[in-house]
Design a protein around this nucleic acid. Sequence first.
RNA 1: GCCUUGGUGGCGGAAUUGGUAGACGCGCUGGAUUCAAAAUCCAGUUCUUUCGGGAGUGUGGGUUCGAUUCCCACCCAAGGUACCA
Length: 979
Amino acid sequence: MFEDISTALDVTQFDHERSMMNYDFREIEAKWQKYWAENETFKASNNSEKPKFYALSMFPYPSGAGLHVGHPLGYIATDIYSRYKRHKGFNVLHPMGYDSFGLPAEQYAIQTGQHPAITTENNINRYREQLDQLGFSFDWSREVRTSNPQYYKWTQWIFIRLFNAWYNKKSDKAEDISTLVSIFEKEGTATVDAACDDDVAAFTAEEWNAYTEKRKQEILLKYRLTYLADTEVNWCPALGTVLANDEIVNGVSERGGHPVVRKKMTQWSMRITAYAQRLLDGLEKIDWPQPLKDSQTNWIGRSVGASVTFNVLDAERSRSNQDVISTPLNHPYQIEVFTTRPDTIFGVSFMTLAPEHELVAKITTPEQKAEVEAYVEATAKRSERDRMADVKTISGVFTGAYAEHPFTKEPVPIWIGDYVLASYGTGAVMAVPCGDQRDYDFAKHYNIEIPNIFEGVDISEEAFADKESTIIANSDFLNGLSYKDAMKKIITELENIGHGKGKVNYRLRDAVFSRQRYWGEPFPVYYVDGMPQMIGLEHLPLELPEVEKYLPTETGEPPLGNATTWAWNIETNEVVSNDLIDHKTVFPLELNTMPGWAGSSQYFNRYMDPRNDDAVFSPEAISYWQDVDLYIGGSEHATGHLLYSRFWQKFMFDMGYVPKDEFAQKLINQGMITGTSAFIYRDLDTNKVYSKGLIDGKNVVPIHADVSLVNASDELDVEAFKQWQPEYNDAEFILEEGKYIVGREVEKMSKSKYNVVNPDAICEEYGADSLRLYEMFLGPLEQSKPWNTAGITGVHSFLKKLWKLYSPFIDSDAERSRSATEAEPTAENLKTLHRTIKKVEEDIENFSFNTSVSTFMICVNELTAQKCTSKAILEPLAILVSPYAPHIAEELWSRLGHTESIAEALFPKFEEKYLVESSKEYPISFNGKMRFKLELPLDMGKDEIEAAVLAHEKTQEQLQGRTPKKVIVVPGKIVNIVG
RNA sequence: GCCUUGGUGGCGGAAUUGGUAGACGCGCUGGAUUCAAAAUCCAGUUCUUUCGGGAGUGUGGGUUCGAUUCCCACCCAAGGUACCA
């Protein structure tokens, strides 16, 4: 009886001790997450004696699906770096927020009527929960949401600043519009060199001063950095909306399959082209990935050449084809082309205009009119992408008109063809079939002459596009010149005769900034007499109105057209009912909203001072934080967000608001984490499902199985599968060796492929520290790599081993602990520790987080083998681990006796002296192949080593009597014997 | 087509300026512990072999005493981009 009780007691005590001893990650992680939140451990101060470090992850769009394991990858990397920098004594800014305007919430609103603000709020809360459980060191007090009026106030503010600015090419920067007005007042357009619309007219100061206010505004609009312009869009009449190129499939809308036409619409645009060259130049001074820089470079698409003007001959003389030289020209029309090969101008045998070109209607002869009009109409129906995708079909129509060659004065037939794009260059080309394959194909197809202007080149099969390897012929004054010399000469000649000049052209287009959507920033704009007026800065934000329906109106207006209270009263400066619009004091407000990239184009600056209501940020905040030191995010933003942000930053720089004209010094693109799908194989003929090893020769179809039903050995839980997919209840699962083995394939993580793994489940089973370590352990940050949950047991058991290593500090038996922990570390202990410090520090600096995790494993394995219990070793080790696995590190730190968070503990200092060795195990190679190893003292000289190696019996064995031809000895490294 | 990145065991991946290829982990095999399982621990695990070795980092060449690493040509995969004049 007594015995029983005592045994029972022992067991309880044992259990108690075990629970203290075990690595209880759930309790630990919850405890420290609460601690960090309550103590605001990661709150960044805007003034500090410490050096600053600004680490930023791209903020997410909070989608309804929540996070999957791929999303946190970049956040974990940024977090590790932030925590590391904090250990290194930096004042770290590491914020997070939400890009919370966007289409999915609006779609959901259209379907369910639920206000996008509610959907967004719910999604954000879900995101926050998921983010919180991963233990990030975010300063949540600085959170921003782009859909929050307090935030988008500043998006509207910068829009107004852009509206009130023009780009002065002479000073090569943006200036306030008032400087342009004062030039106009004094000198007219004579001395102005601005980035502006193509169709600006010249005028004198007197003319300007005599213009009406409306006329002046119309002119200024052509110069502003954000402006209204008629832009070609893909209009879908049935949906009453504008579609993006990728929403159109085979010329009809993706949704519903309605016809889409190209239509001109008045839209807000951003004059990003003004910055094309600076955006290009700026790439040289930022540490961004080369592929990303390349795609921006391609996107901007700088090409050097010349613009050339061709006079259009009037119809009479074109037809008679006579006296073209002797009769003076007074035809009003000119065609301007851009060419990168003005040196081939004598090879021109026709011209091609884009079907949309404004001259088409004007120059077409009556005979050709019907055919041309039919062609123009046909191309208008195809989207630009369709036209570009369909490269093989050659089509075009002769206009009947001729242009005059600027040098030979020969008539050149003018065609239209859809291989010329209205949106690039001038929408017209001078066709040189011998030097350009597209022109060549077109000429062949329509039997147009192909003059050869290259010496000794055969053009009977294809065009000759090589610039360097030949010289020009049949080209009057260019004969005998190389490409380079001909380029110089022709540009001089073009300028002499007033028919052109050297020009740099960019592929980059101005960015359309209007969207016919509800869930975006409203423009702070109202219209007086059709002219846009900005709402006073002091009256921002202009808040999004309530609407009953989120769809376009019946008259085809954007969703804001449904708002009944959406007019601006200029006396009270408030939004009032539309009924009050009188065009005297109450005016209609803009109905478009801003695009998704508006809110993300300066959020990184707003984080510096996010609660400031008087300025986008205070001068103190921006001068302290300057710019982002490290920016991590996906490469899909290369030509969107990352280009627009650089543009706005340069504008802010020009206006003197920010000290740096590039917002992020270093950028890293994290790779995508792909899913590892699982498949079962259903026989098409019978009701059988075969295991993977049995499918050979069978008529089976692979079917996705949910990855959570498969274990680490690719074995399917058949019962669980049947429960999940009841239609397989009657199916017969044919096993191999008693197991059903699934097939595996790496695919993009997606719901429909049942390969989505979400972090909540992982945190529940293994903890956030395990997840963080595992995400890093998978491979290099930049690379894309497949997720396989099975491997997480490796890092999880590492954490258990780590925990065990600290058991003298965790164990309640104080007596045992003290003597053990205060022991002096051994030389071996110190060597292990310092090797780890060195490696981990290098790894973090190089963003090679995967190798650090292995280093930790090796370190813990070694210290465990060494039975190390020394506080002098375990204390610095906890700091090393803390950026990666912060919860367990905090817990161990506190068990080591600290009462403060580990977050501010200084990173241990690496000391070389602990790694110094006295001997080296030399690899002995024969003809470059390592055959055996030999331990030799490190202070041994070259000759001694050679003698020692040659004397060794294994060397003799390897040589088998041969005499070595040569012996290479690299002291401290290797010995190689040749022969 | 063009640009970029990559190609190493069954899998993820390591190898710092050319110097021991496959660290670390998963998986697998065998063993210990257990009534049993989980967990844990130990040993093995590139291929091949006549157990001496031999071969091996997408393919074929080259430079070098020595190449996963540098050079040339090619093949394959992923991503971006595309009638850009």
